[in-house]
């Protein structure tokens, strides 16, 4: 059973401060999946993504990746994960290009240009992130999705501060990614326009 699934979460139990989250949560992720995590504010959506990425350790439960248990040593999983959190992870004092070169040092400049073109950022290539708007900064962070080769994307509220056009672009990119065998786990409060997703609900 575990061999067919790409990533398996079993019996997960997260403790955050005073609260228990995701009691006994189990699910599988297959390639081609778009998994949407639903839940109220504070239900532990972001925490779940952080646990999968290895930023925090679960109280109980196991994480399997490619048939191997990676609960304690996430290195193999982390190499194929692209995680975008609430804060974009974009350095303000650097330019757009420098930020992307930091995360993806090996991309060619034509790849970089086409990714930025897709997001409408090409003219901002050399401007400092300081001068950009919140939506533009979000787009800079998202442009990593065009440049990286990771199979599993963990996106925490990827649509926040994006305009309608941006949402459309991002959904199209997610579809491309899953069509080519990748998988996406995302949290969002918005309805997905064109994407079909499996939903997982977290209750308090």
């Amino acid at each position: 059973m575990q061999s067919s699934a790409f990533l398996t979460i079993s019996d997960l139990w997260i403790e955050r401060g005073e609260r228990d989250l995701c009691k006994r949560l189990s699910f599988d992720v297959f390639s081609g999946d778009v998994l949407r995590i639903l839940g109220e504010n504070g239900a532990g959506k972001s925490s779940l993504l952080k646990v999968i990425s290895g930023a925090i350790s679960p109280l109980e439960g196991k994480v399997f990746y490619g048939g191997q248990e990676v609960t304690n040593d996430r290195h193999s999983l982390q190499e194929s994960i692209l995680y975008l959190g609430h804060s974009a992870g974009v350095k303000k004092v650097l330019t757009v290009e420098e930020n992307l070169r930091w995360y993806c040092p090996s991309v060619s400049s034509s790849e970089l240009h086409s990714a930025l073109e897709a997001l409408g950022l090409l003219s901002l290539l050399d401007s400092s992130v300081n001068t950009l708007s919140a939506g533009q900064i979000r787009r800079v962070a998202l442009s990593r999705l065009w440049l990286s080769k990771q199979k599993l994307w963990l996106l925490d509220e990827p649509f926040s501060s994006l305009d309608a056009e941006g949402v459309g672009i991002l959904e199209k990119r997610i579809m491309q990614h899953t069509a080519s065998g990748g998988a996406v786990i995302l949290t969002t409060h918005q309805d997905l326009l064109s994407l079909h997703s499996r939903d997982i609900s977290l209750s308090l």
Binding site: G54, A55, E79, Y83, G89, V90
Partner: peptide, 15 residues
């Protein structure tokens, strides 16, 4: 600054 802009988190999960 790395803490507030989220890049510290990216370092932690970078592998």
């Amino acid at each position: 600054e790395d803490y507030t802009d989220g890049s510290l988190e990216q370092l932690v999960i970078s592998g």
